[in-house]
Nucleic acid binder design. Structure first.
Length: 579
RNA sequence: CGGGGCGUAGCGCAGUCUGGUAGCGCAUCUGCUUUGGGAGCAGAGGGCCGGAGGUUCGAAUCCUCUCGCCCCGACCA
């Protein structure tokens, strides 16, 4: 491609709308432009990078035995009513009507559609296993789109759905997908980690997220420092059980705490440790109101609570509900003397606590010296808090660290949730109809590109890993009006094209500084500069994007293409050596 | 949905408090000079001041409503 013909509008200034580095750089490098909130146009440079990632995904998915299909993006409501998700999916599902007033939605995911396809076509155990994938635009009407392609409403996703005869067969498929995902993200040059994850509203039993480690990630991962355990904090069990305290029982008493609501305020005012305080939270859910208790220095984990309750919906109660359940106002509520019958769940860490402080359900008052069994009934105990640094690794009892991650892929064992709802069955060897056991496997394509940029950039711009770079090499002709330079550029351009590289010839009538800045900004891995030295010594200059000025080599023009090939080969080896 | 902020030239912003000729930088166009890290000088074009209504002799500026965008929270594959 010739730069003079390429639609590549770069921006010198930092765009005001962008918050995170990948978003800023993708705008500046002319990869994307925003159309509306959460909706982006892909320009040639951005599209090239997306296509590279898609190509890697296709190769690995095909190699793992999956087959590509393309499913409709607009989907009839009936299907979603059949699976029950028309009601349960919520406002993220963008619904619409056609001219006949029939209900449709834009596909945020394709379980329903793939089931509708497969249930008509697959009859026998002989047709299984089957694994189908597509690379499709999805739409999720996110409450708050942000960070550019990281969380947009319309986005490109690879989604695969597997169909197996039983759990054992699904295990094999799942493992194959897991391995394929590792290869895909390896090849994209990402520093990532597969972590145990919650299954969310998609449902199912086992699940792993593929997290790209980055400070700007929206998810938090709990990692063990000693073994390779890692899990989304939403899921990681908090195992430290405090030993029972054997202090003598104190008498329960009211303490005046005027205006002291938060844990810090109350414990600071009373001069006690947050560990001695029981924090009370009221939730509403489809299973009714819930009172959750955690220690003052711990945080509630709503995902765990939701799983425990088997609730579809769980949210912090509003002030009205809080006072109707407890009789108190937020900041002064406690589990003693709750109104009516309400399910009370205490975190495991509270089992052994004695003489604790908690809200009195009366404004400006707390209770101290409170004890289970005497002042209030023993609640049911469970693990409902977020894991902390002082908890042990659930696998090896080592220390836990926290990292932020960007979720670029997610694999689920769905089981028979959808096949039962949507009647996707096969006949086994005995002629008995059984529900097909399913798995599903997603990769955010745009998010993968954004994550790669998040991990690979410097103050001058993007530093693309070669496999997903829009161009592998740029030839910067310093002065295009100079015939010797320009003809050398053309010749090298032809050589590199012939060798099969994605090469960009910067033939613009721009000053050299502009060309260098744009080459750096767009992150092209290798730059070949053709300047004065072509006339004096017949030499050009090769510089990797990762190198400073010092690292350049200066081969003769005729050797440049071969040297570029050698450099790329070395880069590929370095890449695999890193793993 | 709650809280906060912003909509003025293609982009980034000032001007709004205190009403009176719509500005600056970058970009664009022309000319000359320059040519290895986002050039210099001279000149030019470009605006329904997000939209609607109101107050006023007069509104970018004050008031009301509305639309859009961004941030924090809530929520969420």
């Amino acid at each position: 491609m010739r730069y003079s013909k390429l639609f590549l509008p770069t921006i010198k200034e930092v765009p005001a709308e962008a918050e995170v580095i990948s978003h800023k750089l993708m705008l500046r490098a002319g990869m994307i432009r925003k159309l509306a909130s959460g909706l982006y146009s892909y320009l040639p440079l951005g599209l090239r990078s997306l296509k590279k990632v898609e190509g890697i995904i296709r190769q690995e998915m095909n190699a793992a035995g999956a087959q590509e299909v393309l499913l409709p993006m607009v989907q009839p409501a009936e299907l979603w009513q059949e699976s029950g998700r028309w009601e349960h999916y919520g406002k993220e599902l963008l619904r619409m009507k056609d001219r006949h007033e029939r209900d449709y939605c834009l596909g945020p995911t394709h379980e329903e559609v793939i089931c509708a396809l497969v249930r008509h076509e697959v009859r026998s155990y002989r047709d299984l296993p089957l694994n189908l994938y597509q690379i499709q635009t999805k739409f999720r009407d996110e409450i708050r789109p942000r960070f550019g392609l990281m969380r947009s409403r319309e986005f490109i996703m690879k989604d695969a759905y597997s169909f197996d005869v039983d759990d054992e067969a699904l295990d094999k498929t799942y493992q194959a997908m897991y391995r394929a995902y590792c290869r895909i993200f390896d090849r994209c040059g990402l520093n990532f980690r597969p972590v145990e994850a919650d299954t969310g509203s998609i449902g199912g039993h086992a699940s792993h997220e593929f997290m790209v480690i980055a400070d700007t990630g929206e998810d938090i991962i709990a990692c063990c420092g000693s073994c390779d355990y890692s899990a989304n904090v939403e899921l990681a069990p908090a195992l430290s059980d405090e030993p029972g305290q054997d202090a003598p029982d104190e008498a329960m008493r009211r303490v005046h705490t005027p205006g002291k609501r938060s844990v810090e305020e109350v414990t600071g005012y009373l001069g006690i440790s947050p560990k001695c305080l029981v924090k009370t939270l009221v939730f509403t859910s489809d299973k009714g109101p819930i009172v959750a208790l955690v220690r003052g220095d711990h945080n509630i984990n709503e995902v765990k609570l939701k799983r425990l309750l088997r609730a579809e919906r769980l949210e912090l109660a509003d002030n009205l509900t809080v006072s109707s359940v407890t009789g108190g106002e937020a900041g002064f509520i406690g589990p003693v003397g709750l109104k009516g019958r309400v399910r009370v769940i205490g975190d495991n860490a509270l089992k052994g606590i004695k003489n604790f402080v908690t809200g009195a359900n009366e404004s400006d008052w707390h209770l101290a010296g409170v004890n289970w069994g005497r002042d209030l009934a023993w609640p049911e105990f469970s693990d409902i808090r977020l894991i902390t640094k002082s908890d042990p690794c659930p696998r090896c009892k080592g220390g836990i660290e926290f990292k932020r991650g960007i979720e670029v892929g997610h694999v689920f064992k769905l089981g028979t949730k959808y096949s039962e709802a949507l009647d996707v069955t096969y006949l086994d060897e005995a002629g008995v109809a059984r529900p097909i056991v399913m798995g599903c496997y997603g990769i955010g394509v745009g998010r993968t590109v954004a994550a790669a940029i998040e991990q690979n950039h410097d103050e001058n711009g993007i530093i693309f890993p070669r496999p997903i770079a829009p161009f592998e090499c740029v030839i910067s002709v310093v002065d295009v009006t100079d015939e010797a330079m320009m003809s050398a550029g053309e010749r090298l351009y032809g050589d590199l094209l012939e060798s099969g590289f994605d090469v960009l010839l910067d033939d613009r009538r721009e000053r050299p500084g502009v060309k260098f800045k744009d080459a750096d900004l767009t992150g092209i891995p290798l730059r070949i500069t053709i300047g004065r030295r072509i006339k004096e010594e017949g030499r050009v200059e090769l510089k990797l994007r990762t190198q400073g000025k010092g690292g350049a080599t200066s081969p003769l023009l005729d050797d440049a293409a071969a040297e570029a090939a050698v450099i790329f080969k070395a880069m590929d080896h370095m890449g695999s050596a890193l793993k």
